[in-house]
């Protein structure tokens, strides 16, 4: 089926588009696509890019206080990767026809959404471990699937990101594993981080599909290949064993292996908290927005200098 069928009839074009997606075709920027597909992708990709950028803030908080030079170098590299991830995805999103500056303006004005997880504070060093292990672990489950999505530029950006996320995931796990071999205080610190990050990490996959307004379209168009609940379950199944291996307890009394389904059963997620946080009432929403705006404003001289330098070279 030819995706770019020559006709002025939109419904005919849309049928051809849907058929070619079903046949496994990957959509490229210049291919015809339904306006809604473009809009949904832009919404999803810009939110994803913003999440990477805002994600630098909670971790950046610990760069000056990392417990050793090696930890500091690793953390700086990780935070730099998050900036890079944001740039890959902005670049991919721009192929859908929106300029990066417009997306960034929306973020700085507080009009754009980003992952709710980054509105939680990082109050101990163990939180840096929990972010790498749990938050990036959840992101890997999500992004490994997105790497097979129907939009070419997004899928290619995800492939690149997934390679780097494995480093993030392992360095985080190692921070906690190390603490769990330490003193009572260090073990307690690791467990405390686990207790605070576990549920927000599960919320990262989004609301249950029954309450996720965009899921049906995204699944039809293979932007999403699995439901939010499927991916959440996948994350839980692979993470429980990792927690047990280093002696961390998962803060869920209802967590139990189900021999019949071959999955872990787990307790009720507090969706009220999730909606509070994405609607601006999380512990750090205002702080993150302020930090991001400050970083942008404080970087103005770098952008000015680069531009002045380019202009000066042009005239010489």
């Amino acid at each position: 089926m030819d995706i770019n069928v020559k006709t002025d009839d939109v419904s005919e074009k849309e049928n051809a588009f849907n058929d070619s997606i079903q046949a496994g075709k990957v959509i490229e920027p210049k291919d015809w696509m339904p306006e809604k597909y473009r809009k949904q992708l832009l919404r999803m990709m810009s939110q994803h890019a913003h999440s990477e950028v805002v994600g630098m803030l909670p971790e950046g908080n610990w760069i000056t206080r990392a417990p050793s030079l090696a930890r500091k170098a690793i953390l700086i590299a990780k935070v730099q990767d998050e900036a890079g991830h944001g740039l890959y995805i902005y670049s991919a999103a721009e192929t859908l026809g929106m300029d990066r500056s417009e997306m960034i303006d929306q973020l700085l004005a507080g009009k754009a959404k980003y992952s709710s997880i980054f509105n939680y504070p990082t109050i101990s060093w163990a939180d840096i471990g929990a972010i790498g292990w749990l938050v990036d672990g959840a992101a890997i489950v999500n992004q490994t699937v997105l790497a097979k999505c129907s939009y070419g530029p997004y899928s290619r950006a995800m492939l690149r990101i997934c390679r780097e996320e494995n480093f993030h995931n392992k360095q985080g796990y190692q921070i906690l594993a190390y603490l769990m071999r330490g003193t009572q205080e260090q073990k307690a610190m690791a467990q405390d981080a686990m207790n605070r990050w576990w549920w927000p990490a599960l919320m990262m996959f989004g609301p249950s599909d029954k309450e996720s307004p965009n899921s049906a379209d995204l699944l039809k168009w293979k932007v999403k290949l699995f439901t939010n609940d499927d991916l959440r379950q996948r994350f839980i199944d692979r993470t429980v064993e990792q927690a047990q291996a280093i002696g961390l307890k998962i803060p869920d009394d209802k967590l139990k292996w189900n021999e019949e389904t071959r999955h872990y059963d787990f307790g009720e997620i507090n969706w009220d908290e999730f909606f509070q946080v994405i609607n601006g009432n999380g512990p750090c929403n205002k702080l993150r927005l302020k930090q991001r705006n400050d970083a942008h404003t404080n970087g103005q001289w770098v952008r000015d200098a680069a531009k002045a330098y380019a202009e000066k070279k042009k005239t010489n």
């Binding site: 740039l87 721009e94 290619r156 950006a157 680069a306 330098y309 042009k314």
Partner: peptide
Amino acid sequence: AGSVHAPDGEI
């Protein structure tokens, strides 16, 4: 690989 924004080729 992708794209970048920059004021000139060198940057």
